[in-house]
Each structure stands twice: as structure tokens, then as C-alpha cells.
């Protein structure tokens, strides 16, 4: 489970938190994908990831989301119970050529990434004017 982290740089932790933040798993983050009138909105859960540890790339129509979560320091504490660890999140999606990758906007807030991928102008829904008469 330690392999496959090649997309990410290794440890980012400070000395006391290095052990805690050793990446031990690659994780596929949960994503919601909804289509709106002019764009497609992707919502990705990335708990523990701050914006410095997140990379979003588009190349040849392939969207790659890669982030590394980091646990807060617990110096002087011992683990009692553990359900989450520092992980490398990775999700790869192919964009349709009906989307415009140049116009992607990304916001990371409270551990949730929101990506808006605009549709190309020519396929946006248009209201067709109806002439009376």
C-alpha cells in the first residue's frame, strides 16, 4: 500500500509529526459530479489537505486531482484508536471534448475541492427566441 504515491512528493511534516504523517495508503476520494446549464461541477472530499498539498492538472483532456492529507500534530500523545491516516488522494477523470479545460476554476475550502468545468460555448444551452406573429 505504500507504492503508487509517485505523483506526490514525500513527507511534508515537521519533525515531530513525521511519523504520524507517513503516507501509508493511496485513497480514491469520493466525488459528486453534477451538470449545470453552463458547466459541470465536481465536488471532491479531501479532508486534511491544504491548498499547498493539492495539485489539479489537465493534460490532453485528462483531469488529475492529487492531494496529500496531513494530520495535525499530536506531540506527547499516544494513539488510542485510529481510523484515518495521512493518505495520498488521487483521482483521474477524462474530460469530454465538449468541455473547455482552459476555463476550469478550483476552490478548496474546509477539506472540500470544488471544480467548475465550463462547457464549450457551442454546446451551452440556449434559449431559442420565439417570434410572435
Amino acid at each position: 500500500m505504500t507504492q503508487g504515491t509517485d505523483v506526490l512528493s514525500p513527507e511534508r511534516g515537521t519533525v515531530e509529526s513525521q511519523e504520524v504523517n507517513r503516507v501509508t495508503a493511496v485513497c480514491t476520494p469520493a466525488v459528486d459530479i453534477v451538470e449545470r446549464r453552463d458547466d459541470v461541477l465536481l465536488t471532491v472530499d479531501l479532508p486534511g489537505v491544504d491548498d499547498g498539498a493539492l495539485e489539479v492538472n489537465v493534460e490532453n483532456g485528462i483531469l488529475t486531482i492529487a492531494g496529500q492529507s496531513r494530520l495535525e500534530s499530536v506531540q506527547g500523545f499516544e494513539p488510542v484508536y485510529r481510523e484515518h491516516v495521512a493518505v495520498a488522494y488521487r483521482r483521474v477523470l477524462r474530460l469530454s471534448d465538449r468541455l473547455n479545460p482552459a476555463g476550469i476554476t478550483a476552490h478548496l475550502r474546509q477539506g472540500v475541492l470544488r471544480l467548475a468545468v465550463p462547457k464549450r460555448e457551442e454546446i451551452k444551452a440556449r434559449r431559442v427566441p420565439i417570434s410572435a406573429g
Partner: peptide
Amino acid sequence: AGELDQAETVHQRERQ
């Protein structure tokens, strides 16, 4: 809370 209410079409829904 979900964010699907603003959708016209839901393509994928994995978040709890």
C-alpha cells in the same frame, strides 16, 4: 448537506 440541489443532471454521487 449535499450540493446536488443546484444540479440539472447528477452524473455521479459518492459523497456521504
